[in-house]
Computed example of a mutant assay.
Amino acid sequence: MAIEVVPADPAWPEQFRRVEEDLTAALRGVPVIAIEHVGSTSVPGLAAKPVLDIDVVVARTSVAGAIAALERARYRHRGDLGVSGREAFEAPDADPRRHVYVCVEGTLHLRNHLAVRRVLRENDELRQRYAATKQTLASDPDMDIDRYLAGKSAVLQEVLALSDLTGDEKAQILRLNTGGPAT
C-alpha cells in the first residue's frame, strides 16, 4: 500500500483542538497529565501523512482507567503494539483521521515524540530536509510502512542529535525505527 504524504494543512491544529476537547470529556475522572499533539502534523509547515498523532499522558497507575474511559467512548484498544508504556487506540471515526496513544509519563517513547516535535519546530533546515525525505520515500508506489520508517531514520537521528535524549536512548530509538530489537 502506498504511503501518502501531503503538504502541511493549516487545519491540523484546529482538528487537534476538537479531538483534544472530545478526549478531555471522555477521560473525565481520569487524572490526565497532558494531551499532546505530536508527529509531523504538529509541526507547522511540515509535510505529513494526513493523520494526527495524539499522546494522552498519564501516570502508570492511571493507564487502566484511561483505557476503560476511551473504550467507553468507542475507541478500540489495540494493545501496546510492542512499545512498552504506550497503549494504542483506533478512533471510532475518521473525522479527523488520527492515532491516539495512552502514554506513561516520562517514558522514552513519549520523550522521543516531544523531542522530535520541539527540534523540528525550531530548526527550519532540518524540518525542510525531513519533509523532503518523507516526500521522496512516499513517491515510491511500492513503499510500505516499515521501509518508510527505516528510510526516515537517518534524518531523525540528526533531529535527535539536537535533543536532550542520551546516547543510549537515541540508539534504542534507531533500533526501533529500523526494525531491530529495542533491548
Rank of each mutant, 00 (worst) to 15 (best):
M1E: 07
A2W: 00
V6H: 05
V6A: 10
P7A: 07
P7N: 03
A8W: 15
D9C: 04
P10Q: 10
W12C: 07
P13W: 02
P13H: 03
Q15K: 12
F16W: 04
R17A: 11
R18N: 06
V19R: 10
D22Q: 11
L23H: 13
L23F: 13
L23N: 13
T24G: 15
A25W: 08
A25I: 10
V30Y: 08
P31V: 01
V32H: 04
E36F: 11
E36A: 14
H37R: 03
V38F: 11
V38P: 10
S40Y: 04
S40C: 07
S40V: 06
S42R: 08
P44F: 09
G45K: 12
G45T: 13
G45Y: 10
G45V: 13
G45N: 12
L46D: 09
A47C: 00
A48P: 07
K49E: 05
P50W: 11
P50S: 12
V51I: 15
V51K: 12
I54N: 07
V56T: 08
V56I: 15
V57Y: 14
V63N: 08
V63S: 07
A68G: 12
L70H: 11
R72K: 14
Y75D: 14
Y75I: 14
Y75K: 14
H77T: 00
D80W: 01
D80E: 13
G82Y: 01
S84P: 00
R86D: 04
R86A: 07
E87D: 11
E87A: 06
F89H: 12
F89V: 12
E90T: 15
E90P: 00
D93Y: 10
A94W: 08
A94L: 14
A94I: 10
D95A: 10
P96F: 04
R97K: 12
R98Y: 08
R98L: 09
V100N: 13
V100D: 13
C103H: 15
C103S: 15
V104W: 03
G106K: 04
T107Y: 07
L108M: 12
L110N: 12
R111I: 11
N112T: 13
N112P: 00
N112L: 01
H113G: 09
H113Y: 09
L114D: 14
A115S: 15
A115L: 06
R117M: 03
V119D: 14
N123Y: 00
N123C: 04
E125R: 13
R127I: 11
Q128F: 02
Q128K: 02
Q128N: 04
R129H: 03
A131F: 02
T133Y: 01
K134H: 04
K134S: 06
T136D: 06
T136W: 00
T136V: 02
T136C: 00
T136K: 04
L137A: 02
L137E: 02
L137P: 02
A138W: 03
D140I: 03
P141V: 05
D142G: 15
M143P: 05
M143G: 05
D146C: 00
D146G: 01
G151W: 01
K152S: 02
K152Y: 02
V155N: 01
L156G: 08
Q157I: 00
L160A: 03
A161R: 14
L162C: 09
L162E: 15
D164K: 04
G167D: 14
A171V: 05
Q172T: 11
I173K: 04
L174M: 02
N177R: 09
N177G: 06
T178Y: 00
G179L: 06
G180C: 06
G180V: 05
P181N: 07
P181S: 09
P181H: 06
T183E: 12
